[in-house]
Amino acid sequence: MKHRTTAGLAAVALASIALTGCASGDNSAEGASDANVCEVEPAAETSPAPSPSPEDVKAVEGIEVTGPVGEAPKVSFKTPLEVSSPSSRVVDEGSGDELAEGAQATINYVVLGGKDAKQTYSTWETKKPETFTLGDPQYDLLNDRLIGQKVGTRIAMASTAMDQTVQVTVVEVAEVNQIPTRAEGTAVEPEAGLPAVELADDGQPTVTIPADYQAPSELVVQPLIEGDGPKVTKEQTVTVQYAGCLLDGTSFDSSWSRGTPTSFPLNGVIPGWTNGIAGQKVGSQVLLVVPADQAYGDQENGAIPANSTLVFVVDILEAKAA
């Protein structure tokens, strides 16, 4: 189980996202025995985080945080500060809306080195607070500590970063926003011959790709559900549910498998996503068939072979300024 620092969370590898499209409703493919079926893997169970030792608890209790909520805090502690596992305490209890799993939390935070207490990063200074979905496994360091708290909560925590140095982070929740978990709107009849999509009761897609389906030379953008929200622009950050497949039915990536929607800047992913999602309405579901030249070209990327056409089903849940 990965335990990221908040600073590490800001560096999620968004550019690796590849999404596969699925059609909604009962647009099931005929002759399924001659088709490739792409099913999303179920969400994996995660192991509980190790419990902090009494020494870890004492170390975090020694972190002093002063200053009014809403402003950059002053943080001090005895150096060097060391912990054997992620440890935290609530410095200030919030009084705003409750933080529930599946909601989007916007946080400000400051990071200091445990060895010398020198500040290494602050969203207050960059004026770029970070937004994520509560429950997203990539933020496992924060989920249990924030879910059930309220807006305005301030926590102090110490953890080991990816370079094995101890970091002290003070996090403050600035805002929470409840968003849908799936696309809701008017069903759109897709063009004949495209990969077909069936939706489970919770909205999770299964994609059926005809065995004789020919990879397109140009990007295919097929709305399956039309939402009633504003149109997405390339400069925005979007929150989506998605499933990605290869033409042989292999599932290579899915937010459904991680249990929560995913947010990323639309200008920071593959061109097929940037070009396919921009111009669509929030609340829509879109099937994308992305040629290799708008995906990863002749480069292998994880489970995606070189020169692969990618299929995505994308539920656009929210779009906001990056």
Rank of each mutant, 00 (worst) to 15 (best):
A321F: 03
G152K: 09
W256H: 07
G25E: 09
E191Q: 13
V207L: 09
V171F: 04
N143P: 08
A321P: 04
E101A: 14
A322G: 07
R154L: 02
P80Y: 04
A100K: 15
F312D: 08
A322N: 02
A183K: 10
S53A: 14
L266T: 02
K231T: 13
K127G: 02
N108S: 08
P271I: 01
T250K: 09
A29F: 00
S87Y: 08
V176L: 00
V197W: 06
V313H: 07
D201Y: 04
P265E: 02
E41I: 08
D56H: 03
P52C: 07
I316E: 01
H3S: 14
N267K: 13
T165E: 11
F312V: 05
G135Q: 00
N307Y: 14
E226V: 13
G25R: 09
G272Y: 10
T46Q: 15
G8W: 02
V176H: 03
E130F: 15
Q294G: 03
A117N: 03
S257W: 08
T153N: 04
N307K: 15
D144L: 06
A211N: 08
C245T: 04
V170G: 08
E93W: 00
P265W: 09
E71G: 10
T260E: 03
L19V: 15
R145W: 06
T206N: 13
R182C: 05
P180I: 05
